[in-house]
Computed example of a mutant assay.
Amino acid sequence: MSSTVSPLQPCLHPIYARLLCAALRQRGFDEAQILAGTGLDWAQLHGDNRSLNFAQVQRLVRRAVQLTDCPWLGLQVGCATQVSAHGPVGYAALACADLRGVLQVLERFSVLRLSSLRLTGYLEGERYCVRADEEFDLGDVREHILATIAGTFLRLLEAVCGALPVGELRFTFPFAEPAWGAHYRELLGPGVEFAADCYSVSLPLAWLDRPSLSADPQAARIALRDCERQLLDVREGGDWTTRVQLRLLACEGRYPTLGQLADEYHLSERTLIRRLREEGGNYQQLLDEVRQELACWLLLNTPLSVEAVAERLGYQDTSNFSRTFRRWLGMTPNAWRNGQLAVPAP
């Protein structure tokens, strides 16, 4: 696992959170029930394409499993996900000439949709394997995330190649077989193994030359150019909103002013304001969001007292921090912490 990647850095395209919310709506839960205690806003989640960080994903998954009492919910959601949900990465994969090209697209560009895992392809005898290594500990939502990926991968293969002999596919998961393991074999086929070193999927080497049903060289070139452009943006630090978020996440209680931040980027204050506004935000909004996420993360994942968390976030007065936290999540820090810790792990 990489020690340079933080669980509070943006890591998941919001469409996957929307799909999870849609699955919960189909089960009869309303918006307020779905997002209770997550710190997420329904309108923002469905109208803003900024990636979610892992802490937000973790809270939403925990809430979803709590509501449904269905620990294999991620597998169901993954198996129901259409290829179009993957944006340019999905379009590029669909338009490839063959399955070999599809896997190359996934290995190179999956980071554009989910950056908490690193995909690597390799040969193993007469099989081709793709393994996923965690950039940081996925904790109690590991099963949900990996099961979702497995279901999504199977649907993508079927969209590209048509019906496949699923008995030839092998999925390995890095956790002990759960009591609901039969659901994995029902949805993914018989080649499911648990207690592995890492998540992986493998298929016969001969499958790599299977032609795509939707091969389109021109569409592939367009989609791949889009993917390469997005990948370059990511490597250069992302958009201005992401750059500012990451800079604020690196702070320890003393946050720079807007003017100081502009100086760091060699911009005028007006220029930085304009660039953030063009992306739909502003500095104070981003600072509030970073402080909220850090507060939730520290309350849930450390033994720090509320007073220590307030100090860590730059609040001189704990009561001021508590009032702000209540505005964010509708309850006091202690009440939120106790409620989250009482939620059973997925």
Rank of each mutant, 00 (worst) to 15 (best):
V141Q: 05
A17T: 03
L313Q: 02
V343H: 06
W207Q: 04
L60D: 00
E107D: 07
G139P: 03
T152M: 14
C198Q: 14
C70E: 11
R243L: 06
R59Y: 09
V61L: 05
Y122H: 12
V306N: 05
R27K: 14
Q316M: 15
P88T: 11
L169W: 10
L232Q: 13
G339F: 08
L224A: 08
P14V: 05
P211Q: 12
P346T: 10
G181L: 05
L276M: 02
Y16C: 08
R170C: 13
A159Q: 10
Q33S: 13
E311N: 15
A250F: 12
D263W: 08
S322R: 14
G101V: 04
V61H: 03
A345W: 02
A55T: 07
R221D: 07
R18Y: 03
L304E: 09
I15C: 00
A97W: 11
R247Y: 15
V61T: 02
P7S: 08
A220F: 00
A132Q: 06
Q76L: 15
Q58A: 12
A36K: 15
Q284R: 15
A176R: 09
L248P: 06
P174G: 01
N334G: 11
A22G: 06
G238R: 09
D133A: 15
L287F: 10
L24Q: 07
G139F: 03
E293R: 14
L287M: 13
R62A: 02
L231T: 03
E311W: 15
P88H: 09
G121P: 03
R108T: 14
G339R: 09
V166W: 01
